[in-house]
Design a protein around this nucleic acid. Structure first.
Lengths: 198, 198, 198, 198
DNA sequence: AATGAATGAGCATTCATTCAT
DNA sequence: TATGAATGAATGCTCATTCAT
C-alpha cells in the first residue's frame, strides 16, 4: 500500500478537494497539500487544473466501469442486469460521496466547457445501460418500442438525481436496496396498477 | 416589450450569460453588457454575483411553476397530469436552453454551496411530481408500493438528464413529443413486455 | 434656528462624518444622509469631495479665529494672552471632537495634497500666536532671542498633540485648566528649577 | 547594499510611496513597482495594505528608538538628554522626509483607525521624553510641578509640528541646530525675560 | 433648486502557472 | 524529479460624480 505513485496520490487528493469545494473553489495548493507534494510537482503530472479534473473522471469512472462490467459478466438476465447496475451505482455513490459530487456537479461543468469531449469514459459508462436494454429487446424481454438512447438517459438520470439528493441530505435517506428496488420496479413494471389477468 | 424594468433585464441577461459561461466564468461586466446597463447598476438591484444566481432560479423557476400549475389545473387524470408535466418541462427546457443549463449546472453548485437553502422554488417544482403521484395512489391508479419521494426524483432526474444531453448535443435529438411519450411509457407501464391478458 | 441654509447643514454634516470616518473613508452619501439632502444636492454647493473638506476648515477655523480674537481684544498682557489662546484652543477641541479630529488628521492630508494652499485660515490662526509673541518681545516681556516663527509652531504643536491624544483617549485626561496651566508654565518659565534670587 | 531581502525592500518602498501619496492614495502596484517586485509578492510578506503601514511604523520607528537610546546612554545630564532627543528627532525627520510624512500623517490615521493599538513603538518613542523628564525631576533639575505626561506631549508636539512644516515648505527653514536650540531654550528656561539676580 | 438612479473608472487581492535551484 | 518563491493577469465591487426629471 505504501509507495503509491504521485500520479495516483494527486488524483485521489483532487477528487477529495473538488468534491469538498467544487472545481472553481478548489485551489491547486489545496490539492498539493492534500497530496503532500509541492504545488509545482502537480505540473509534472498534469498540464493544468482542468486536466486534473478530466483525469479524475477518467480514472474514477474507469474503475467503476471495470467493477460493473465484472458483475454483469456473471449475469445473463437483462432484468437482473439492470438491477445490478442500479445497485452498484447507488452503492458506489453512497460510499464515495467525493466522487459522487464530482461526477454530479463537475461533470456537467466539464461537458459544458468542452462539448466535443466524446468517447469518454462517462459515455462508455452510460452506454452500459443501453446495451443491457438492447440485449433485453433482442430476448423479447424488453418492449421493442422503448428507445434505448432515451431509456438509458432516463435510467441514469433517475439514479443520478437520487444520489445527488443523498449528498445534499435534504430528504430522508432510503437504503441502497430500497431505492434500487423502487427504481427497478418503476422501470420494469411501471407505476400503474397492473390489470389482474382473468 | 419596451420599457422592461432593469431588474428583469438583468435577470434575463444573467440567465443567458450564466448559461453560456457558467457561474464562475461569467463576469459581472458580461452581464452588464448583455443587459445594456453599467456594471455598477447591477449592484443597485442585487447584493452580489451570487445573489443574481439565486434570483435567476427563483424567478425563472417561479414562472415555470405558474405555467405548469395552470396546465395541471385543467386536468384530473394523474396519468395525463404526469404527461403534461413531462411535456411542459421538456418544452421549456428545449426552448430556453439558457435556463436549462442554469438549472442543470448551476443549481447543483448552489445546492452544494448553500445546503440549507430549502423551501425554495426548485423544491416546490419537484414536489408537483410527488403530489401527482400521491393523487394517483389515492385514486388507486398508481401502485401503492411506489414511494412518491423516490419516484419524484426518478421522474425529474429522467427529464433533467435528457434535457441536459439535448443542450450539449452529443446525440440525436428526438422531439419533445417522442421523448415525453417514451418517458411516460416507461414510468407508467415499465419496460417489460406486458403479459397478454387471457 | 430653523431654516438653516443647506450650505451650513452640509458643512456641519461633513465635519461630523469626516471626524468619524476620516476623509477617505467618508462617503458623499454619508454626508448627504447626515445633512438630510440628496447626494446630488451636495454638488450644487461644492465642486467635489475635497472642496467640502477645504470649506470645513475655512469655516470652522474661521469661527474659532473670530472667537479667539474677540477674547484677546480684551487683554493686553502678552502672558495672559498666550494663556487665553491655550485655554480657548483646548476648550474648543475638547468640546468639538469632530472638528478637532478633522483639523488634526485631515488638515495634514490637505496640506500634503495641496502644498500651495497658503494664506488660508489655518495659517491665520497659528499666526495669532506669533503676533502675541512679537507683542511680548516689543514690551520686553518675552526674550528677544526667541524666534516667533519657531515658537508659534512649538506652542501650537504642543496644544495640538495634547488634544490629539485626548481624542484617541490613550491616557488620563487632565482638565483644560490643568493642561493649559502646564503649557503656560513650560512656555513662559521653562522646566528648569529657578535659581533663587539672593 | 546588494541582496537586500524582499521584506526590507518592500518596507522601504512603502515608506516612500506612503509619504509621497498618502496611505489611501498609494496603490499596491506603486509599492510593488518601487520595490521592483510583482504585486503578488507583497502578499507573501504582508497580510494586506494596512499591515504594510503598520510594519513601516514599527520598523522605522524601532530603528530611531535604537539610535536615540544609544545616544542617550552616553549622557547623564537631563538637560543635555532633552537636547539630544530634539536634535536627533529633527535630524532624522529632515533627512528622511518620507518617514517624517508617514509618521506625521499616517500615524494619526492609524491611531484613529485602531484606537486600541497600544504598546506600540510610537508610544515607546514618546515615553523616552517623559523618562528624561522624570530623571531630571529626581535630580531636582526639573521642576517637580511639571507633569511628565503632559510635558512629553508638549515637547513631542513641538518637534513634530516643526518638522511637519519643514516638509510642506511653507516657511523659511531654520537649521536643525538653530531649531533644536530654540526648542530647548523654550522648554528649559521658558520665554520670559529672566529677572536679573541681584 | 433638488433629487437619486445611473454611470464606469479604479483597485486590493487571489491564485494558476513558471522556473531557478 | 521535486520544490516553493515569485509572478502578474484577472475581476467583483465601490463610490464620486453626472444628469434627466
Amino acid at each position: 500500500m505504501k509507495a503509491v505513485n504521485k500520479h495516483t496520490k494527486i488524483i485521489t487528493a483532487a477528487t477529495k478537494v473538488f468534491a469538498q469545494k467544487g472545481f472553481f473553489n478548489a485551489r491547486i495548493s489545496d490539492i498539493a497539500k492534500e497530496a503532500k507534494v509541492a504545488d509545482g510537482t502537480i505540473y509534472l503530472y498534469f498540464n493544468n487544473k482542468f486536466d486534473i479534473l478530466l483525469s479524475v473522471f477518467e480514472e474514477e469512472i474507469g474503475n467503476i466501469i471495470v467493477q460493473v462490467k465484472k458483475l454483469l459478466a456473471e449475469e445473463t438476465d437483462p432484468r437482473k442486469m439492470l438491477e445490478i447496475f442500479a445497485t452498484k451505482h447507488l452503492t458506489v455513490m453512497k460510499k464515495n460521496k467525493n466522487l459522487a459530487e464530482v461526477i454530479q456537479i463537475e461533470l456537467r461543468q466539464t461537458n459544458k466547457l468542452i462539448k466535443d469531449y466524446r468517447n469518454n469514459k462517462f459515455s462508455e459508462y452510460v452506454n452500459i445501460i443501453s446495451d443491457i436494454i438492447k440485449l433485453g429487446q433482442e430476448q423479447k424481454i424488453y418492449r421493442s418500442d422503448i428507445l434505448p438512447g432515451i431509456a438509458k438517459r432516463a435510467f441514469f438520470g433517475s439514479l443520478d438525481e437520487i444520489s445527488r439528493v443523498w449528498n445534499i441530505s435534504l430528504e430522508t435517506n432510503y437504503t441502497v436496496e430500497e431505492t434500487a428496488s423502487q427504481i427497478i420496479k418503476i422501470f420494469l413494471s411501471g407505476m400503474l396498477v397492473q390489470p389482474k389477468p382473468a
